[in-house]
């Protein structure tokens, strides 16, 4: 019984220390960088447009499309498809996505479509696509919006993020930032 009371009291102080004081300490440090600690929100004219790293659903022809999402970019209930690599339902879905993409982007062949454009991300919120995935959509966006392709080429190039230090990471384009810049263009 004495041992029990000791262990119980130790538990209580540890819960307070690691469950409350430690996170509050980190939260306190976060006050020094409010933008980052809030998850890098994008705010314009006092309106919250989104978060830099949280992808949004773009299905309209006038926007660059991001990756398919198993949860429809629902950032309150995230997740992946969890479909196995040989699951027939998965293969059907990939085929449907590819067909739809090719219909909306005439002139593009399947071999030009990077696999990330027909597969869902793990969290369902992937904010990025590869530069190639953006490039093959330029013709469609240009036609829909009536903008010169050159202008869009330049826009995609300026939104392409290279690996850290030149080698550490992947080349990628943030779809939300690209599309926000696209809307600014006109």
């Amino acid at each position: 019984m004495k041992e029990f009371s000791k262990a119980l009291r130790l538990t209580i102080v540890l819960i307070i220390f690691f469950g409350a004081m430690y996170p509050l300490f980190i939260w306190g440090i976060g006050r020094l960088m409010p933008e980052q600690a809030a998850g890098l929100p994008i705010v314009k004219d006092g309106k919250l447009l989104g978060y830099e790293n949280i992808g949004q659903s773009f299905t309209d022809d006038k926007y660059f499309w991001g990756r398919p999402s198993a949860v429809g970019y629902n950032a309150a209930s995230t997740g992946g498809s969890n479909q196995g690599p040989t699951n027939p339902a998965h293969l059907e879905l990939v085929k449907a996505r590819l067909d739809s993409f090719l219909v909306h982007n005439p002139g593009v062949t399947a071999a030009q479509v990077p696999s990330e454009l027909v597969t869902a991300s793990g969290g369902g919120l992937d904010p990025h696509i590869s530069p190639q995935s953006a490039e093959i959509q330029i013709a469609r966006v240009a036609t829909t919006r009536g903008i010169a392709e050159d202008k869009l080429n330049a826009l995609v190039a300026s939104h392409t993020e290279e690996p850290h230090f030149g080698f550490f990471g992947t080349s990628r384009v943030n779809v939300l930032k690209l599309n926000l810049a696209l809307d600014e263009l006109q």
């Binding site: 293969l91 399947a110 696999s115 990330e116 027909v118 597969t119 991300s121 992937d126 990025h128 590869s130």
Partner: peptide, 19 residues
């Protein structure tokens, strides 16, 4: 996925993040 002839040069991407 090879039957669909998409570009898999980045590897298997289902459930993975581009970054």
């Amino acid at each position: 996925l090879e039957q669909f002839a998409v570009d898999q040069s980045q590897g298997s991407m289902e459930g993975k993040e581009v970054r």
